[in-house]
Design a protein around this nucleic acid. Structure first.
Length: 412
DNA sequence: TCTGGGGTCCTAGGACCC
DNA sequence: TCTGGGGTCCTAGGACCC
């Protein structure tokens, strides 16, 4: 007997834009975008004109002259998201929050208390609308993959329940792009071989698929297209890397610019690490040139670090190497720091392990961390902008406000 | 007039060890 | 001295997710 649908995927529709329309009734029913230089979210009315997130503001206005662009109420996004997640949490403890506006729920054990999955799905939609005021789409199915696809097909403000007896028929005609792991590049490669629907993908030759997308991806894609998805709903997943990046338009990569931007990024990353008593061993710097080609340079340190200055120094030296390897490039459009190899470090051990220029255990290493820690404490009391390194304090360069960055951060 | 920000996973080659 | 194979770690790049 087929298992009944017990996985729900709940996904708020055009979340940031919907919040703006909730806060300001004058925006309802109208094409709006959240952002400024770049669109962070578009309402459905704006999407109908072709406006998408990531699009530059002038292009969005070109596509949709009546577009209203709003700056965004970032603290409201967090507050309303928490309210929605709280509602979801009343139906099961088995919740996997994927991002600020999306979560999987396993309601297999909730029947006695709350009824069948389809009843719960309807109840969730009713309550989120009534109690929060936001539209939310829900997919209910036997697996995460099916539930996710169902919610995407249901959008906006819809509900689809996939009957286990009808799963194949449901998937068959849908575009391959809906399969988890198929992005623009894979979609194009598949299309060039005549594979456009999930049904095509399910029937495709495994060897040919491996040649197109590689061994691992081929295995997953084939399984998903054939409706096999072994993934469980997993609570409280933590990040394995921590990073920050800043787009720079078109900038000459002068030492001054590098110091300023990498100082700011290192400050964001290192203070997050310290707040969770974490340190990292591997640092990767990404430099994107004008024209979107990007390169990375990374290094793995002998001892973990968590101080802002140590991270900044490593990042600056990696950036120098990256630029020196590409002398033909005269302008850059982005700098990024990513750190990985997270370790949990007791405070004392961490301070001793921080390598300064003179090596691990150098007196200045402990001093640096001490400076960081007192700065962390001042910020805890007076806010992030209360104090910072001279370079890091001039942080307004990025196109996106720092509050927005916080919304996408995963727990570490 | 070009393209935000925080993440995950995979591939492939090389170094190194046993 | 030469050769082989497996495992692990590191680096660089790329596709993808939200």
């Amino acid at each position: 007997m087929a298992t009944r649908p017990a996985i729900l995927h709940a996904d708020l529709d055009a979340f940031y834009a919907s919040v703006e329309q909730l806060l300001d009734p004058a925006l309802r029913g109208r094409p709006i975008a959240v952002g400024g230089g770049v669109v962070l979210a578009a309402s459905y009315e704006a999407k109908r004109h072709g406006v998408t997130s990531g699009m530059v503001g002038w292009r969005a206005r070109e596509l949709c002259p009546e577009l209203t662009i709003v700056a965004g109420h970032f603290s409201e996004y967090r507050r309303l998201s928490e309210q929605v997640m709280e509602i979801l949490g009343t139906y099961t403890p088995a919740i996997e929050q994927v991002s600020i506006d999306e979560a999987f729920l396993d309601v297999a054990g909730s029947r006695r208390l709350h009824g069948e999955p389809d009843v719960i799905a309807r109840e969730i939609r009713r309550r989120v609308t009534a109690e929060v005021g936001l539209p939310i789409s829900v997919g209910a199915a036997r697996t995460k993959h099916l539930a996710k696809i169902a919610s995407q097909v249901a959008k906006p403000d819809g509900l689809i329940i996939v009957d286990p007896a009808r799963e194949r028929a449901f998937l068959e005609p849908l575009p391959v792009r809906l399969v988890w792991g198929v992005g623009p590049a894979t979609e194009a490669r598949l299309a060039s071989r005549g594979v456009t629907t999930i049904g095509d993908l399910a029937r495709s030759d495994p060897d040919a698929l491996r040649r197109i997308v590689g061994v691992a991806a081929a295995g997953k894609l084939h399984a998903l297209a054939n409706n096999e998805d072994p993934r469980d709903v997993r609570r409280g997943r933590r990040a394995h890397s921590v990073g920050a990046q800043s787009a720079l338009g078109r900038s000459a990569p002068t030492p001054g610019l590098r110091a300023e931007v990498l100082g700011h990024l290192a400050d964001r990353v290192a203070s997050r690490l310290r707040a969770r008593r974490r340190a990292i061993r591997t640092v990767t710097v990404r430099v994107r040139f004008v024209g979107m080609r990007s390169i990375t340079r990374s290094t793995t340190l002998e001892h973990p670090i968590a101080s802002t200055l140590a991270l900044r120094e490593v990042a600056e030296s990696l950036a120098s190497i990256a630029l020196a390897d590409n002398p033909g490039e005269s302008a850059i459009s982005l700098l990024a720091i990513s750190t990985s190899g997270l370790v949990e470090e007791p405070e004392v051990q961490l301070e001793l392990a921080v390598p300064g220029p003179a090596g691990p255990g150098a007196p200045e290493a402990a001093a640096r961390l001490a400076v960081d820690r007192s700065m962390d404490r001042v910020r805890e009391r007076f806010g992030r902008t209360a104090v910072g390194y001279a370079a890091a304090a001039l942080s307004s360069r990025g196109a996106v406000p720092d509050e927005f960055r916080g919304l996408a951060e995963k727990e570490i």
